[in-house]
Simulated scan of single mutants.
Amino acid sequence: MESSGKAPALKISEIFLSLQGESSRVGLPTVFVRLTGCPLRCVWCDTAYAFSGGQTMSLPEVLAEVATHDVARVCVTGGEPLAQPACLPLLGALCDAGHAVSLETSGALDIGQVDARVARVVDVKAPGSGESDRNRWQNLALLTVNDEIKFVLKDRSDYEWARQLIVERQLAALCPLLFSPVDGELAAATLADWLLADRLPVRFQLQLHKILWGKLRAR
């Protein structure tokens, strides 16, 4: 699809309908708008195909494509969606169109200008990602109970790092917290046992889409 030339334009990797695989919205039918590009290179990234390529679409074209799926919930993801300035007007336009909108972001970029109606799922990068020095800690003060913090953990060291961070920064008082194991690196049952032993106030989650459809269709 060619862009109409009207600003703002976005580079889109894909738009598709699936079940939300993560967060408190897990299992709900959701339209995913995946933006191309990401300034981070997490060692366990499972969407590296979104680093480049895609097609340029105008904002009206994106909204029209989303509308064809006839689903209320929309998740804007990447890559890192906030790396594209036009992501901000996209989020607002989706809300204006009546969608329940969530944003999946690495947490490395400023979330302060995101429309207040959007639920922000902020990924705090643990050391095992190779990108923990990219965490933008100022974002934590901007979070509300409508948002969520996600930790993707590769090993015991990542877990202990996240556990300490929760205590030191009192993250449980900010918003819901999500813990996920890196697929193929940390056994899900092992992480579950650690959480139970420590009684951490977090939600354990697996990537539902991978359980249902496997890595080839993982979104």
Rank of each mutant, 00 (worst) to 15 (best):
S106Q: 13
A86G: 09
V114T: 14
Q138F: 01
S106C: 13
L88W: 04
G98Y: 08
R120H: 03
V101K: 12
A100M: 10
Q84I: 05
D133Q: 15
G128W: 01
G130D: 01
V121N: 10
Q84L: 05
R120E: 00
E104W: 00
A119D: 07
A126G: 03
N135L: 10
I111C: 07
P85G: 09
D123A: 14
D110M: 01
V122D: 01
D133M: 06
A93M: 09
H99Q: 09
L109F: 13
A119G: 14
V118C: 06
L91A: 09
V124W: 08
D115S: 12
I111M: 06
G107W: 03
D123H: 11
V118H: 01
C95I: 07
N139C: 11
A108E: 03
K125I: 00
C95R: 15
G112M: 02
T105K: 12
L91G: 08
W137H: 09
C95D: 02
D115I: 02
L88A: 06
V114I: 09
Q113C: 11
P127I: 00
V118T: 10
N135F: 12
S129G: 06
L91I: 08
Q138S: 15
D133N: 08
S129D: 03
E131V: 13
P89G: 10
S106V: 04
A116Y: 01
R120I: 12
A97K: 15
K125W: 01
D115G: 08
G98E: 07
G107Y: 05
Q138D: 14
D110N: 13
E131F: 02
P85Q: 06
P127F: 02
H99A: 12
P89Q: 12
S132R: 06
A119E: 15
L103K: 10
N139E: 05
D123S: 13
V124M: 12
V122N: 02
A97W: 01
D115L: 00
A100R: 07
Q113D: 15
H99T: 11
P127H: 03
G128E: 00
V118W: 03
C95K: 14
A108T: 08
D123I: 05
R134G: 00
K125T: 03
A126R: 01
L90C: 06
G112I: 02
N135T: 11
S129Y: 02
V114N: 07
G92Q: 13
D133R: 14
L94S: 11
A100V: 12
W137D: 06
K125N: 04
L90D: 07
L109Q: 13
R134W: 01
H99G: 03
V121Y: 03
N135G: 07
Q113H: 13
G98T: 14
V121I: 15
W137C: 06
A97H: 12
D96P: 02
A93N: 04
I111P: 04
A126Q: 00
P85I: 06
A116N: 09
A108I: 07
L109A: 12
S102I: 05
D123N: 11
A108N: 07
H99P: 10
L88I: 13
E131T: 05
D96I: 00
C87N: 08
A93W: 00
G130C: 04
A86L: 14
L88V: 14
L94N: 05
W137F: 11
L90G: 11
G128F: 02
I111F: 00
S106A: 15
N135W: 10
